[in-house]
Nucleic acid binder design. Structure first.
Lengths: 245, 245
DNA sequence: CGAGTTATTGAGGCTGGTCAAATAACGTGG
DNA sequence: CCACGTTATTTGACCAGCCTCAATAACTCG
């Protein structure tokens, strides 16, 4: 179910106000964005965009988790991005979606009509500079992920994903992540496998393996406890200097 | 050998003038860029940047081919980007190189001192918008590559790389690539393996296999003849791929 | 509680990796 | 121009890691 909200909450109260594409805007600039925005909600599992869809808007993810993925005609699928609150969907100057985007939890987005948004990007350095920062962050993340996909073992892949989620889901973004951490996986085993370039069986086996090695505890299908994040990090194959964001 | 050129060619005569980060600038903006630029050359095989290097400049690649790569401490290496003329090296607001950059042919770059360049990015939409375009293009390319790394078979990977090179090396860029094509590989087997997430032995074996299947001919270490590009494309696993890159 | 979905576990096979050796191409100096 | 040493590439034998197919278990939600 897709819903378009008619009530227009004020940007001042927006939970992603200080991280999203609008984060550097104030006063008049913010007001212009406010004029062209509207909200949409998607239920878990809903497609947000299919490759090839015409794009009449871009958007910021407000709530929930979505994935960007690509697939081959025989069904092989690779996730190429994870969208969390404040992440940006779409691309100025691009009228057609190049990838599939799917809500994996209930999702709420803040849409901007594309044409007026593109004009704002052109004329507002506070927007284009923020967008540049965000896309370069994503490029760095994509390149990190290429190392994982091309060169890491299944165990290293799983450990890397868990560490990534522990960091990104941690209540205190940016701050030091505590050694003992717990979180709920926002992804099914299948989604994880598509993210890591593995099969879901291998994901399940490696999780069990990490569990029996005492590096994690599993509770239910989604709950994960990491007693010592440092130990888990040492399984990722990374040099600890890669502690970016 | 790294050389810093003292003579300052005029931007008007620059071969990448209309594709690089400066492509939207004219007159005064171009002059400001010209003030903070200098040239450097690197021999084939030379490192241009090591991860962790302090960055006092950003740059545009003028001539040659370079790679962006990442490696793990045990030596596993993954190429995460290929830099061709007009591509941009570095990132405003980033003082440390996040990846290794290596010249694989002789390379010439146009450097801009970082601090003044960052100020120009802030104040010049013609620069930041172009930079945004370029980084989004790279992001799209990285995401295409993630599908290859995560989900394609060795044979599909090799076929994809050959098709990519055939397209890019083809004298007629952009135009329809002829069905019969010949080119010289700009990469060693090892470089290919690092690009594809394979071992060099597997690369060699798959090339031999494609040869014995009549899809390609090999002459010397680098020469490749593709009698029918369409047949090779059908081995890449791609759908209606074509028009990108 | 029961049907459907999601996850775990097992057995066996195949792809691609590892180790090793042979061959081919390249470059240098005589 | 050739001999020789070096490097790049090919090929072989073997094997490990991950995938496939299949059955069972756990969880979710009406």
């Amino acid at each position: 179910m897709i819903r378009t909200t008619t009530t227009m909450p004020n940007c001042k109260d927006c939970p992603i106000r200080h991280n999203a594409v609008c984060s550097k805007c104030e006063g008049d600039e913010l007001r212009k964005l406010e004029e062209i925005k509207y909200y949409r909600s998607y239920d878990a599992g809903q497609p947000i965009l299919w490759r090839g869809d015409p794009l009449d808007h871009v958007a910021s993810l407000i709530e929930g988790v979505a994935t960007i993925s690509q697939s081959m005609e025989d069904g092989r699928t690779q996730m190429v991005g994870l969208l969390l609150p404040s992440d940006f969907i779409g691309r100025p100057g691009r009228g057609v979606a190049p990838f599939d985007v799917t809500a994996i939890t209930d999702v709420k987005v803040c849409c901007f009509r594309r044409k007026p948004f593109e004009q704002l990007v052109q004329s507002t350095p506070n927007i284009s500079n923020r967008l540049l920062e965000m896309s370069m962050d994503e490029l760095d993340a994509a390149r990190e992920w290429m190392l994982l996909l091309g060169r890491k073992t299944a165990r290293e892949k799983i450990a890397s994903l868990l560490v990534l989620i522990a960091r990104r889901m941690s209540p205190k973004r940016g701050a030091q992540v505590p050694s003992h951490t717990e979180f709920n996986l926002p992804l099914t085993r299948e989604a994880m496998s598509n993210y890591l370039g593995l099969t879901l069986e291998t994901v399940s086996r490696q999780l069990s393996q990490l569990k029996s090695d005492g590096l994690i505890e599993l509770s239910g299908q989604r709950g994960v406890v990491v007693p010592d994040l440092g130990l888990l990090i040492s399984e990722t194959g990374e040099t600890w200097d890669a502690a970016l964001a």
